[in-house]
Structure formats: structure tokens, C-alpha cells
Design a protein around this nucleic acid. Structure first.
Lengths: 383, 383
DNA sequence: GGGCTTCGTTCAGTTGCTTAAGAATGTGGG
DNA sequence: CCCACATTCTTAAGCAACTGAACGAAGCCC
């Protein structure tokens, strides 16, 4: 009953074609037929409709033995999506085209008026056709993240309210899942195999994409993978959670508690600029050969690596993407640590070669990812 | 490109209807229309065809205000599947109908001739129409399980060879995944929500079903979830794996090493009857108030609970099913331990109420599950 | 220019479903 | 008993998506 055949006849060709072009960047009609399994006739018909609607554009021809292929691409400006990321001090808005590329960006103080207001400003400033905006993706901060004007709200409430205020569909997603969808959508990763995106912002999480669909994990689920069965108690009520032992908050707290590390990172004893910024300071210090900060990160990384290995083993993944500002700042520690732990066992025992990469736009992944979630939802009607 | 629209027009109605009836046991045509979202006309047409093919049977009528409904069920004998489970000393064959119910069972010494031979015997002895047998599901034992006549084979090889010998399609699945699919298919669990089936046979594993589809985990992935980041080295090359710390083999080894526990369980110092049997002996001893054996199980259970919590958190599950001979024998320890760990945090922090149940046919779950995998594959053509 | 190759389109036909109307099969009321 | 009435199921006509196969289009090579 999950995949009900829908009221009208759902034209699978449209979605197949759009998705295939998204994944390949550009394709000709015959290539589309080969890739999607449709006949050339069906592709021809559907493509014409998509061209008429302005979703696709013809772009050059590539020579062959006979008639050259006319290549097709998504028209980036045909459909737009907005992504919103709420941090403690600042709210970031991004406007992306249907290929996921960023068209414009806007940052405002966290408490500045309403979200709907910011979105309106972004759209106006960008001078785009507002009717083309498919919807708004919002990155839901973790339950512990300190976003004062959101405290006490739940995702459903935010979604309903923002949808009402902005008059557009709103999707709310956690940062890690959004980032994972972003990787799939924009960086064209994971079309052929499942993967996980590990995300470190003000907390740590993972988004898992299987067959191009995100598994709906709980907010911050990866942060509460157990890496120490009898470890210290976590705020969630359990013991030995990754977040407690190795999350950015834990790293920053440890750095503050250690005068030498705090000095290396230039952390003020009392004033915090937020977890994300403080963690970045620790990472910078480590990179500049601050031994205490480096040691703290190494410890954290060893736990993250253990949790990553759990996920890789559990779901038989062979691809991990590190993303989010935390990994953007400290991937030089976390990347190798994860690889060291994940690769040998994978190769030797499971005959699996695990790749660990860092996202190309790690620092802003979750906001652009939130926009990608909106784009994704318009392609895959089935849920 | 994953869900290509197929060569002909793929009739989604057939699959929706069969799956809806499977899940609900029996339904009338109007109910089917409501549940599947199809129109009554479409249901009528499709149902007639399914009746003609003998897949469905009409079974009684339930009164209403007007014309009574004629209820439809799957004809259990219309399609059959064989499940095969290879253990160290014995190979079990089960023949099930398309509802997953066991029609007949056969156990042979592990080394008795060929698998194809056993399947042939099973079908002959059952006196069923062999043409109705959709295929054979084989439970692939873990890489460490001691099945002598399979040593050095890989799943692909087994599949190809058995398909050739038996002349039927063969699907190979690991025990935990098979058991999970079996729960979904036979016990009608998880139609509305994702769940995990934890399986303990001669090793420990988990099958995860989301939207009625099994996530393809590696063989024994759950056994190599890390519950102790700096724990003892595992044969897989990693550290602190669940299986090393708490798997049945570890429990049995610990019982053997402890004279008091070995005495309680009646374990011979030198001769082993196989991990599964030895573990069952330990569980029996614990149930009969053998304190040392109980302590060993409690320790194991605390690790399993930690790993279970990781999975529950990671994938936001609210249902765990314990299955396999190991849990069948020792669920009185593992069930409460897992509940103690998983429920409080889930309820308090994630606003999620996690249910932990024991499978109704835990001891033989993987063999019947393997048959269910075959049935499942015939319903969901999409991979 | 005439093959040759490859790309894309057109057109008739099939199929799975829809909508709309009607047949079947029960209940309860005169 | 016969007739509304309710509800279930079937039949008939139509639409839209896709298939198959033949055909037009656009380049290269001789």
C-alpha cells in the first residue's frame, strides 16, 4: 500500500528522464532511451513536452558517425528552491536552481524579523520569477542546538507556520539528511550505490541515501550511536553516545577545560561564539601544529571512526562523505582517522573498498542540501 | 534509473492488490479499492484475472447494509517457495505457500548428497505441483560459520550452481535479512513502519526492513557494530565488535572457560555440538537458575542492547523483533535487557515508543524467511 | 551526389487505467 | 410478496502512456 498507483496515470517517463539528465548533466535522446529503458519514441514525446515547459534546454550537438546528437540539459533557472539554515547567531538563506547550483545567498542576524521575511528579501534581491520557486527547505537544528527564537517549536509547527506565511510548500529536514540529499543531487554521488554523509555542525549526524532516497533517521541519530557500551551518561539518557564522547560540543568543552588547548585555540574562558565557531578555532589551532588541540581532535576522530565503521558495516556502504562546517575545518584529522579504521577491515574481511571523501562545499552543505530536498521531492512524487 | 518503467506498461494494480491482500489476510473488492487507491472498476478487472490465474480465491461474504462483500484471499497453494537453511550438522528445507505458511519440512544431515537432491525430495514428498514452485531461497551462513561442504564458496557461486542443478531461480540471503523479510511477509509486521529483526543463530545479525524492502546489509553487519571503541580486536580486523564481545560464540567460549558455568550448562570440555546447540544449553541453564550462565547472558545482553540502541537511534526505528534460535532460547534475558536500554531514552528524548517483541516462530525464522524472500521478489518486480 | 550511419519523429496499435452508468444481491417496510 | 434502498461489483466507452516499426533528418566518406 506504500506505492499506490495514484489517481491519474503517473507518467514515469517524465521523472525518469529528468532524473537521468540530472545525474548525467547532459544527455541526448538516444542516450536517454538507453539509460531509462524507455523507447526512443517515448523519450522523444516526453522531451518535447519538457522543452515546451521550459524545464529542459537543448545545448549543442556532439558528433557521431551519422546525425549528431542534440544534447539536453536541465534549465537551471526553470525551477528554483530556497534553503534555510538556522544557526545560533545567523540565519542563512540560499536560492538554488533546479540543478542545485547556488543562485544567491543571504545572511541575516538570527533574530531579524521572520523567516518568511528573509525569503521574500532573497527572492526580491535575486530578481527571479517567484512563481518558479518550488518551495522552501529548512534545516531543523538539533534538539539541543541553541536557536533561541525556535526554542520549544517542533518541525511540524515550523513547517505549518512558514508555509502559511510564505505561501509556499515547506519541507523540514535535519542538517545531516539535507546534506546527504545535497550530495546526491548536486554532487551526483550515490546514484549507483548507497552512501552516508557524516555531517558535523554544532552537533554530529549522518544522512543515509539508498537508491536516491534518504532514510528517515531521527534528528541527530548518528550522534547517539553507542561507541562505548558502559561509557558516560549522555543527555539523551543513554550511555556512551558518540555525541557525548566526540561531538563538537564535547571537543570544545574539553579544549576550554584544558588551559593549554584553550590558549592554542584562542578560546576565551567565558565567552563563546557558538559551538561551530569555537570548534573551527580548535581545528585551526590543530592545523597550525597546536599539539593539545590536535590530540583532542584525534581522540574525537577515533570515536567518530568507530561509529562510522558501525554504520558502514551495518548497511554495507562503500562510500562516506564528510560534510558540514565541522568536517570542513577538521577533515585533515577526521578523514584519515576514519579511513584508517574503515578501510582495512572492509578490504580484508568484507571484500569491500570503502571510499571516504570530503564534500566539495562542506561548509554550507546543509543549507544547499535543504534546497535539494525540495527539488528531490518534486521529482519523486512517490513517498 | 533505478525504477525504469519497464518494457510493457507495468501493471501496478496486480502488485498493489496482491500485497494489500497479503497484508490484510482477506479483503473485498471495495476495500481493495479504498486501500490501494485504485478505482473499483480497475480492482474488479484485475481481481478477475487473478482469480482466473488461481492466485486468489473467494472466501465467504460479510454482510453489509446492501449487497454483501465477497472476501478475497491468497490461495496458499497457488504459488510455493522453498527455503533452505544450512547449519553445521543439519540442513533444513521448508516448503511454504504464498502466504508464507509452512506446508512441509525436511531435515537431512548436512553432508547428505546435494541441496538440489533435498529440494527434489521435499517437493516429491509433499506431493505438490512442482510447476508452482517459484524458486528457492537459501540462507547464506556467515563467513565464519562452519558449514564444511560450503567452505570457500561465495553466495554468487552457490546461487548459480543451485539454480543450474534445480532448474529454478535461487535467491541467497543472510539469515537475519531473511528472518526480517519473513516477519514482514508472514507475521505482517512493518507494513506501516520500518523495523529491524535481530537474529541470533550461530552468529548475530540484523535485518532491516523499510517500506517492505530489506536494506541490503552485508553478511553479519550487525555483528560488527562497534560497542567499545577501544575494545578487543575482532577477527574482522576491527575493534570492539558486538560479535566478539557478545555473540553466541563468545558466550559459549566464556561458558567453557568458566568451570562453574560449563557445569551448569553441561558443556563437555572438549566436544562441541555446534555453537547454536551449546548456546541453547547455556540459555537453558540460565533459565534453570544457573547463576554463572545467567551472568554471562546478562553481560552479552548489555552489549547487544547497546548495539540495538545504536541501530534504533540511527534509523529512527520503533520496532525490534528478536528472532533466531539464539533469541528463541534466551529472549527472557535479552528482551528485557534491550527494552531497559532502548525504551527510556527513546521515550524521554526522541518522543518515540520502542516496542521489542519476540518472533512467534523464532527458532526456524531464517529458513521460512528465505522462502518469504522468494515470494517477496515475485511481488515486487522492481528491485 | 549517392551510399552509410546514426539520430530523432510520426503513426497506428496495445494496454492499464478512469469515469459513468448499470447489473447483482442483499435488507427492511408496506 | 413486492418494492424501495443500500451497497457491491461489473460493463462500456474513452483517455493517455507507452510500444513497434516505418520513415524523415543530418551529418560523414567515397
Amino acid at each position: 500500500m506504500r506505492d499506490r498507483p495514484g489517481r491519474g496515470h503517473r507518467p514515469a517517463a517524465r521523472e525518469s528522464i529528468l532524473d537521468a539528465i540530472r545525474a548525467a548533466e547532459q544527455l541526448s535522446r538516444v542516450e536517454l532511451a538507453a539509460v531509462t529503458g524507455l523507447t526512443e519514441a517515448a523519450v522523444s514525446m516526453t522531451v518535447r513536452r519538457l522543452l515546451d515547459e521550459g524545464l529542459l534546454i537543448e545545448t549543442g550537438r556532439t558528433p557521431t558517425g551519422g546525425k549528431p546528437r542534440t544534447m539536453l540539459r536541465l534549465d537551471p533557472a526553470a525551477r528554483l528552491a530556497v534553503g534555510v539554515h538556522l544557526d545560533r547567531d545567523v540565519t542563512t538563506f540560499v536560492l538554488t536552481g533546479q540543478t542545485g547550483g547556488v543562485i544567491s545567498r543571504l545572511a541575516r542576524p538570527a533574530l531579524a524579523a521572520d523567516l518568511a521575511d528573509g525569503i521574500d528579501l532573497l527572492l526580491t534581491a535575486s530578481g527571479v520569477d517567484r512563481a518558479r520557486c518550488l518551495g522552501i527547505g529548512v534545516v531543523w537544528p538539533g534538539p539541543r542546538d541553541d536557536v533561541p527564537h525556535l526554542r520549544g517549536w517542533d518541525p511540524t509547527e515550523l513547517r505549518k507556520r512558514l508555509a502559511e506565511e510564505s505561501g509556499r510548500p515547506v519541507l523540514v529536514e535535519d542538517g545531516a539528511t539535507a546534506a546527504a540529499v545535497g550530495e546526491y543531487w548536486v554532487a551526483r554521488i550515490g546514484a549507483d550505490r548507497p552512501f552516508a554523509a557524516l555531517h558535523m555542525g554544532s552537533s554530529i549526524g549522518a544522512g543515509i541515501v539508498v537508491d536516491g532516497r534518504a532514510l528517515r533517521g531521527s534528528v541527530g541519530g548518528f550522534g547517539h550511536v553507542c561507541v562505548q557500551a558502559d561509557g558516560p551518561e549522555c543527555w539523551c539518557g543513554s550511555r556512551g553516545c558518540l555525541e557525548t564522547l566526540a561531538g563538537p560540543e564535547a571537543v570544545v568543552a574539553a579544549a576550554r577545560a584544558d588551559p593549554a588547548a584553550a590558549a592554542e585555540a584562542g578560546l576565551d574562558r567565558s565567552v563563546s561564539r557558538g559551538v561551530t565557531a569555537d570548534f573551527a578555532a580548535v581545528a585551526r589551532a590543530a592545523r597550525a601544529h597546536g599539539p593539545r588541540c590536535l590530540a583532542l581532535l584525534e581522540t574525537s576522530a577515533s570515536y567518530v571512526a568507530a561509529a562510522a565503521e558501525s554504520v558502514v558495516n551495518l548497511l554495507d556502504l562503500d562510500l562516506l562523505v564528510l560534510t558540514g562546517p565541522g568536517f570542513a575545518a577538521a577533515s585533515f584529522v577526521y578523514g584519515p582517522a576514519i579511513m584508517r579504521r574503515v578501510q582495512p577491515a572492509g578490504a580484508r574481511t568484507w571484500n569491500r573498498s570503502v571510499t571516504v571523501t570530503v564534500s566539495s562545499a562542506a561548509a554550507t552543505a546543509s543549507a544547499t542540501g535543504a534546497a535539494a530536498v525540495v527539488l528531490q521531492s518534486h521529482l519523486r512524487r512517490q513517498q
